[in-house]
């Protein structure tokens, strides 16, 4: 399901038009993004947890050139699905 389909399905569900839903989606995404940038964890019951984890810097070796590179530390978003949704898939 791509973005458009998702938006239209969501619009259908909540009873608004697609355009408004699109705006709402963007607003929600911004909210999520802001919360994650503040290093907060977002826990959606029955769905999963969005977490921000810090990855330390590491030394990587380029396989062909054998050059050693230092990859800087990063903050990454991790999603951990909840048991409910995992069961739904099975």
């Amino acid at each position: 399901m791509n973005n458009k389909e998702f938006a239209s399905e969501l619009a259908r569900r909540i009873g608004r038009n697609t355009k408004d839903t699109g705006k709402l989606i963007s607003a929600l995404v911004s909210e999520v993004s802001a919360q994650l940038s503040d290093e907060n964890q977002i826990n959606i019951q029955g769905f999963g947890v969005f977490d921000v984890k810090k990855k330390l810097e590491r030394v990587a070796v380029h396989p062909s050139t054998r050059q050693r590179m230092l990859i800087p530390p990063r903050m990454e978003i991790k999603f951990k699905p909840s048991q409910t949704i995992k069961d739904k898939l099975k």
């Binding site: 919360q35 503040d38 290093e39 907060n40 964890q41 977002i42 826990n43 959606i44 019951q45």
Partner: peptide, 8 residues
Amino acid sequence: MDNKILLQ
């Protein structure tokens, strides 16, 4: 920071 944000 380091808070758990719920759906609400």
